[in-house]
């Protein structure tokens, strides 16, 4: 998980499957190279399918940017655990993390592409969520 000093919005990919999360991250890197801080997490605390708050907190830390972080999630538990993780962040960071209502792979690629152009967190979230509209 190499990172970016670009100051662009960070992208976090949360899937129940570490393979899906890593693969989606590979697709993001292919699109935007190192222009965007990026991290992924997948699996329960023992490495089975699932999501876990500690892993999500760590991913947010890795992808942290002063411009904020957009999280892409797959199924319900990924979203619930991501919301829990956001609430556990320090207060000054909490308001700069959003969970996008978008498909995880497409949303991550679109969000990262938007971020790589220097867009704001709200623009990054909007472009990912427009995929559903």
């Amino acid at each position: 998980m190499s990172n970016s000093e670009s100051g662009n919005v960070g992208i976090v990919i949360v899937s129940h499957s570490a393979k899906i999360a890593e693969g989606a991250a590979d697709m993001v890197r292919q699109m935007v190279g190192n222009a965007v801080p990026l991290a992924w997490t997948g699996g329960d605390p023992e490495g089975g399918l699932g999501t876990n708050v500690a892993g999500i907190l760590k991913a947010i830390e890795i992808a942290w940017s002063s411009a904020g972080v957009a999280i892409l999630v797959d199924l319900g538990g990924a979203e619930t655990n991501s919301e829990m993780a956001v609430e556990m962040l320090a207060e000054d960071r909490r308001g700069r993390v959003v969970i996008c209502n978008a498909p995880v792979v497409e949303g991550a690629v679109i969000a990262a592409t938007e971020s790589s152009g220097g867009s704001s967190l709200s623009a990054v979230q909007r472009s990912a969520e427009e995929f559903y509209a």
Binding site: D44, E46, N52, T80, N81
Partner: peptide
């Protein structure tokens, strides 16, 4: 429970 359960029930029961 929030940190260890690793599914949606972690945040729900933990909360």
């Amino acid at each position: 429970l929030v940190m260890k359960v690793g599914g949606a029930s972690g945040p729900l029961v933990g909360t």
